[in-house]
């Protein structure tokens, strides 16, 4: 703790208090009255519990499938480690949890579940989509009405709530069965990778599988590349890429908001 701007011990006290609230072993900071029962350990423990239990509950609410996959006890213990290592940096709790997926990558006790970080990414994307800016989805009819020679140079604007999570694991299947089914079932026999598309055209957050290579198309479109060149790039990069299926999925999910013509700038 450097300078004390108010010339009193408040900054010092808050420094000690903040550290004692977050650290694992219970150690009551100096400066707290201890001449009255209950003990100051119990009194200070209420604040520690409030801070940690409320943050753990917030994480459980935004990562319900991760919690279901590992169980409540494991999740809470894991969340407490995360909270200690990555406490929130903003008073807006809706922003808390962005680092959870990458934390899981490094969290050894969960290494037996290598798909867990990508499930967390999918759940985080749903959460971000829920709170992201609103925009009206464009109907594919508007694209179909364009003259054929205009299609190559049309730019498709992506919805601010849209996210794509490509994974070597069947994350949409794992997420879906653990969200909707009382008894989760193992996804496809060979556990092939899936790419998730998250959108929120209006109030509902939608999750679906993106067809092969469509994530490459989205990546091109996101950079402002026109449809013709973006489709070329996706075809070259992925043999199984089918433009019709990709466009039907993207428009159907409300991932596209604007169609514009013009030179790239």
């Amino acid at each position: 703790m450097p300078a004390q701007p108010d010339g009193n011990g408040l900054a010092d006290l808050q420094h000690r208090f903040a550290h004692a609230v977050l650290q694992a072993p219970l150690e009551v900071p100096d400066g707290i009255r201890h001449d009255v029962r209950p003990t100051r350990e119990r009194r200070f423990g209420v604040y520690r519990n409030n801070v940690k239990a409320s943050l753990a509950a917030a994480l459980a609410a935004r990562f319900p499938v991760v919690e279901r996959l590992v169980g409540e006890e494991f999740f809470t213990a894991m969340a407490l480690v995360f909270i200690e290592q990555h406490p929130p940096r903003s008073p807006v709790l809706a922003e808390y949890g962005a680092a959870f997926a990458s934390f899981l990558e490094e969290f050894d006790p969960a290494a037996d579940l290598p798909y867990l970080p990508d499930i967390a990414r999918l759940e985080w994307s749903r959460y971000v989509a829920f709170h992201s800016a609103d925009a009206s989805a464009a109907d594919i009819g508007r694209l179909a009405e364009l003259p054929p020679e205009a299609l190559g140079s049309v730019r498709l604007g992506l919805h601010p709530a849209m996210a794509v999570i490509a994974s070597p694991w069947p994350i949409v299947s794992v997420w879906s069965t653990n969200t909707h089914d009382a008894t989760p079932e193992a996804p496809a026999a060979d556990w092939t990778g899936e790419t998730a598309l998250v959108t929120r055209p209006h109030l509902d957050v939608l999750v679906q599988r993106l067809p092969p290579g469509a994530d490459l198309l989205v990546a091109e479109l996101a950079q402002g590349i026109a449809l013709g060149a973006a489709a070329d790039a996706a075809s070259r990069a992925h043999d199984g890429f089918d433009l019709a299926t990709a466009l039907a999925t993207l428009f159907g999910a409300g991932a596209i908001t604007t169609l514009s013509q013009g030179s790239s700038s």
Binding site: A24, P25, L26, G45, V46, Y47, R48, N49, N50, V51, K52, A53, S54, A56, A57, E67, R68, L69, V70, G71, E72, E73, F74, F75, T76, A77, M78, L80, V81, E84, D108, P109, A110, D112, L113, V174, T177, N178, T183, P184, E185, A186, P187
Partner: peptide
């Protein structure tokens, strides 16, 4: 938070080797 037994009193001192929690969720059923 209503429960005063959750986080405040449970020790989360993380030692990977001694991690005492086992994943028991639905991953064990798939």
């Amino acid at each position: 938070t209503g429960s005063n037994s959750c986080a405040g009193t449970s020790k989360a001192d993380y030692d990977a080797k001694a991690w005492k929690y086992v994943a028991k969720g639905s991953c064990a059923k798939m």
